[in-house]
Nucleic acid binder design. Structure first.
Length: 1016
RNA sequence: GCGCCGGUAGCUCAGCUGGUUAGAGCACACGCCUGAUAAGCGUGAGGUCGGCGGUUCGAGUCCGCCCCGGCGCACCA
């Protein structure tokens, strides 16, 4: 037989081989495919069609947290939206009705700041707040359009043409209704309290608006001269009893410590600990003998720092001895008392705490208890008042003469700039015992990044410990705090530690200051009576304003020309002299009201709360970065529980921040952050989405082009495996050719059993929102079970058996089911690719045109009863089969052993392809038993060539293979020996196998019997 | 300062209630195939499971301390 003749024969039969064929491109071309796909989704109204298809199904609503309408949507916000979209698509496929209404947070300081900056830093003369607000709205609207385009480019599907905006009049009115409800239930109070104050932003700040940053402040030890002691003062007796009492009195001071020297002018008391030990000590400084009082425990530390000489402890006494002691303010004319407070500790300082109720929370509480005056000489901009105002705010007596020039120094000075001036003057006047730099973490304004100060102002607060008297909503008379904790416990937190985190925040949080002194926000609808000073915000007034805002937007509050105050107040107050109050709401109050403004108000969402038995929440899920534990989640909980008694969500999923390859937080200034649509353009949305679904988003997620590209291989593998499946279905019509489950070959049923396990694991993981764990299963299944194992073993059947043979149709039925399953499983993640696959997948007529309307696969367990045999849906087939699992596990182990030897022989150039080889197996012991269980020798010899991908397999009955020529022991299977030999048989030119019967059929001398039969 | 989470091959991740030589994919190396072909298959080399100590017959898995990273809290006057 000549080479040419063989070649000719091969050519002749090649056309009878059923080779794979498909138009599904190997190369993804995401950059072209995705925009086209999105355009098609848009024009065909996919979102609306999904809504329609799920109408009447149980609702499952993920309520979108509104990103801030300022700047590009970058990787972090992009990841968040992508994860949300993945959840929504998954739940939709599971059969739920999942409307997704995206929203934007439009009000707030950053935008106002930016607009003000464009106007030159502050509102120019003659410009109204209304004009500023219009500029702000324009700016926000611009970014909403940009961000919308960016999110859509990532394949995120939702009601983009009608999102919720916190600037919509209906939204604003809903926020006000939440406020009204708080007022009605008694949660609101307007009170004078110390609040975090941003002097740069000139507004109060809430806890959520603080960021702790490191900074260094001057730490000073200051002598406050002791001036008087009450009549029964024990300390006085103590000193009087001393022989040197006169010298002691002459130079005696309380030693206090502070890191905020600028608050010293507001000092009104010194706090001590009743139970702690204090000392009266003497020392020499600058050649002078002086006396001081401070805590015993801190004396040596302070003495060392201040380099005090000859320190002598004259007396030791408990703190309570100091009751009745008074001192005079070192540079003002106040006479101040020593008071006692719990929070005085002996860790730092002197055990004597400088107390300024105008500038500290604890100080304020102490001041209230001790009836101390509240001194607060600082204006909105963080500067000391000037002139008479300063004297007044410092509560100086009219006779006070500022002989040493303190007041001129302070006037108009920024507090942080005043610090060193004060220190130097204290030093000059001899009050300063010691000073040093003190590095610590200190609260900063999260928007302006300037250090905040504590300042007493009158603000609106939500009282966290208020008990709602409503018996129906709060039957057990619990505080809001307790009810919040109950609500938190009833929700589900992913990861689970989120519950602890937010729980401890709620346990410890102070009342919520919700008023801000800005323009770009929703006004707090309150008036002040210019005659009585009374604050008017009764329900009728609120209702009146709410209805105006609902119709005309919150601008009515700022539009002096068209909306004079008379129009804003209800008829009942018409005769009073009222003026508008100028506070607006904390933006968090707005976002936190979305449960009401969106979930309970939106026409598409209002009837879709989450229900599970008796449990009800306004939505099924919130999904945000874990910074929202102190932000949106918390404020939403507070407002929702207080006003509705329900949780805003049932599931709360958080993700960590995105970081760069060095693990550093992304920021635009570092350039390690990119707009999401740029990434989509460069890498493809599906690739980015696959990446986010492949990593554990509960710890910091590194996001770089390189890392994402690394996952390109996983994408290509998935795509090609799927292509391998679908390319063998070119002549397969499910309705016509699919076999019933019981007619499928064992190998095929095994593959389906493996698939069932994947569906199972993946569903479970996705229901826990652990996409990366689920995806692992799918990747492994595609790479190993399918590509390397199953599909390799099916090739001969698919290519060489008769087109309509059971063997081939069985494989095709399985390929079809697997392809179908994979498309569905990947659809929530690779939304475009899955849709593309869906077009190429042979489908039954009843399937929807978009994969995103299709159902999530369901797998049956082992024990499932055999359903009837009509070919309809995947879940008839995706069926566990433990027996087949075990059988193929064993067979594949044999394959691994034979592969090792075949590989070596290939490297030795003894053989090339597997069909060149025959394998002899000798099995004893465990493996012998195993093989015997797998089938009779004849059965195995018939089956194994396909599994091992060789031409022939013989079982050797010999007993001592180790001694037989050429046998070698297996690596892992005990008792197994193998011998691989080069097959002498002729290869069939059609199927390449060396079956030993080539030429048996006279008409086809180059074919094996099987192929001859097929060719006919 | 206190608390929470994490630290497993170059990368991304599995390792349940402690139990045989610690797994997977990707990447890498070496081959094979040329009928999934800018594909596919096989084999291999990579880890003292952050460190130290303890409990145990036995620990990546439990306990203690420490180091590193991330996050949160705050009465740092």
């Amino acid at each position: 037989m000549s080479e040419d003749a063989l070649k000719a024969a091969k050519e002749k039969y090649k056309s009878t081989v059923l080779l794979p064929k498909t138009e599904f491109p190997m190369k993804a071309g995401l950059q072209q495919v995705e925009p086209a796909m999105q355009a098609h989704w848009d024009s065909s109204g996919l979102y609306a069609r999904i809504r329609k298809a799920r109408a009447g199904a149980p609702a499952w609503v993920l309520h979108d947290g509104p990103p801030y309408a300022n700047g590009d949507a970058h990787t972090g916000t992009g990841m968040n939206k992508i994860l949300k979209d993945t959840v929504v698509k998954f739940r939709t496929m599971q059969g739920f009705d999942c409307p997704y209404v995206p929203g934007w947070d439009c009000h707030g300081l950053p935008i106002e700041h930016k607009m003000l900056a464009e106007m030159g830093g502050k509102l120019p003369e003659g410009t109204t707040a209304l004009e500023l607000r219009e500029k702000c709205l324009e700016y926000a609207t611009k970014w909403i359009d940009i961000q919308r385009r960016q999110f859509k480019s990532a394949g995120v599907l939702g009601r983009w043409d009608n999102p919720y905006l916190t600037t919509n009049p209906s939204y604003e009115a809903s926020v006000l209704r939440v406020f009204r409800e708080l007022v009605r239930r008694g949660f609101m109070t307007r009170a004078l309290r110390p609040v975090h104050w941003s002097w740069a932003a000139q507004s109060a700040l809430a806890e959520a608006e603080l960021e702790y940053e490191d900074r260094t402040d001057p730490s000073v030890y200051v002598r406050f001269p002791l001036s008087s002691c009450g009549k029964d003062c024990k300390f006085r007796e103590l000193v009087e009893a001393r022989a040197d009492s006169e010298q002691v009195w002459a130079s005696l001071a309380l030693l206090i410590w502070t890191t905020t020297p600028w608050t010293l002018p507001a000092n009104v008391a010194v706090a001590a600990a009743e139970k702690a030990e204090y000392v009266l000590a003497s020392y020499t400084r600058n050649g002078k003998r002086e006396h001081l009082v401070m805590a015993q425990a801190l004396l040596s530390k302070v003495a060392e720092k201040a380099k005090l000489q000859d320190v002598q402890v004259l007396e030791t006494f408990p703190g309570e001895t100091l009751r009745g002691v008074g001192y005079s303010h070192p540079f003002l004319d106040h006479a101040c008392p020593v008071v006692f407070a719990e929070y005085v500790t002996l860790e730092d300082g002197t055990g004597l705490v400088h107390t300024a109720p105008g500038h500290g929370k604890e100080d304020f509480d102490t001041g209230k208890r001790e009836k101390l005056p509240i001194v607060c000489p600082i204006d909105n901009a963080g500067k000391y008042f000037t002139g008479e105002r300063l004297r007044k705010e410092l509560q100086l007596s009219p006779t006070f003469e500022d002989t040493r020039g303190w007041l001129p120094m302070l006037e108009g000075q920024n507090v942080f700039k005043a610090n060193p001036l004060i220190v130097e003057k204290l030093r000059g006047e001899g009050w300063l015992l010691h000073d040093e730099p003190y590095p610590h973490s200190y609260p900063h304004c999260w928007r302006t990044h300037t250090p905040v100060i504590f300042r007493v102002t009158e603000q609106w607060f939500v009282q966290i410990d208020h008990v709602d008297p409503d018996k129906q909503m709060n039957p057990q008379g619990k505080t809001l705090r307790q009810r919040l904790l109950d609500t938190i416990a009833a929700a589900r937190w992913f990861p689970a530690w989120g519950q602890k985190r937010i729980g401890s925040m709620i346990e410890n949080r102070p009342d919520w200051c919700v008023s801000r002194q800005r323009y770009w926000g929703i006004p707090i609808p309150a008036f002040q009576d210019t005659v009585t000073g009374e604050v008017v915000s009764d329900l009728e007034t609120l209702d009146h304003v709410v209805s105006l805002v609902e119709k005309h937007g919150s601008n009515v509050w700022f539009d002096e020309a068209n909306w004079p105050v008379e129009k804003l107040v209800p008829a009942k107050h018409a005769r009073r002299k009222l003026v508008k109050m100028n506070d607006i709401f904390d933006v968090w109050f707005e976002a936190g009201s979305s449960f009401n403004a969106v979930m309970r108000t939106d026409h598409e969402l209002a009837d879709k709360p989450y229900r599970d038995g008796d449990y009800t929440a306004h939505s099924a899920m919130y999904l945000e970065g874990d910074d929202q534990h102190r932000g949106w989640f918390q404020v939403s909980l507070i407002l929702s529980v207080a006003t509705s008694g329900q949780s805003p969500f049932h599931d709360c999923l958080t993700s960590a921040f995105v970081v760069d390859e060095k693990g550093e937080k992304g920021s635009k200034s570092k350039g390690n952050i990119w707009a999401i649509d740029q990434g989509v353009k460069d890498l493809g949305a599906d690739l980015i989405r696959l990446y986010f679904a492949s990593v554990d988003t509960s710890s910091p997620v590194p996001v770089t082009y390189n890392l994402i590209k690394t996952h390109g291989e996983a994408y290509r593998k998935l795509r090609n495996t799927w292509r391998g499946l679908v390319s063998n279905l070119f002549d397969f019509e499910p309705a016509k050719h699919a076999l019933v489950y019981d007619a499928l070959l064992p190998l095929d049923r095994w593959a389906l059993s493996q698939a069932a396990a994947v569906v199972h694991a993946m569903t479970e993981a996705f229901e826990r929102y652990e996409f990366h764990t689920g995806l692992r299963e799918l990747t492994h299944f595609c790479n190993v079970t399918l590509s390397a194992q199953y599909m390799d073993l099916c090739k001969d059947r698919l290519y060489c058996e008769a087109a309509n043979s059971v063997a081939r149709r069985s494989a095709q039925t399985t390929y079809w089911l697997l392809a179908d399953m994979i498309v569905r499983l990947i659809a929530p993640v690779c939304v475009h690719t899955a849709e593309e696959m869906w077009r190429f997948l042979p489908k039954l007529e009843r399937e929807p045109e978009s994969v995103h309307m299709a159902s999530w696969p369901v797998a049956l367990g082992d024990a499932a009863a055999h359903p009837e045999t009509r070919v309809t849906i995947g879940d008839v087939y995706l069926r566990a089969n433990a027996k087949l699992d075990a059988r193929y596990r064993a067979l594949l182990q044999l394959k691994a052993e034979s592969d090792r030897i075949l590989d070596r022989m290939r490297k030795e150039k003894v053989i090339g392809k597997g069909y060149d080889a025959n394998v002899l197996l000798g099995a004893q012991g465990e493996t012998g038993t195993l093989l015997a269980m797998l089938g009779s020798p004849e059965q195995l010899e018939a089956e194994l060539p396909e599994v091992l991908n060789v031409s022939a397999v013989k079982l050797d009955a010999g007993t001592d293979h180790g001694a037989l020529q050429g046998f070698e022991p297996a690596t892992d299977l005990k008792g197994l020996s193998l011998k691989v030999s080069v097959s002498e048989a002729k290869a069939c030119v059609r199927c390449f196998r060396r079956t030993g019967d080539v030429g048996s059929v006279r008409e086809h001398e180059h074919l094996c019997v099987r192929c001859a039969g097929v060719v006919g």
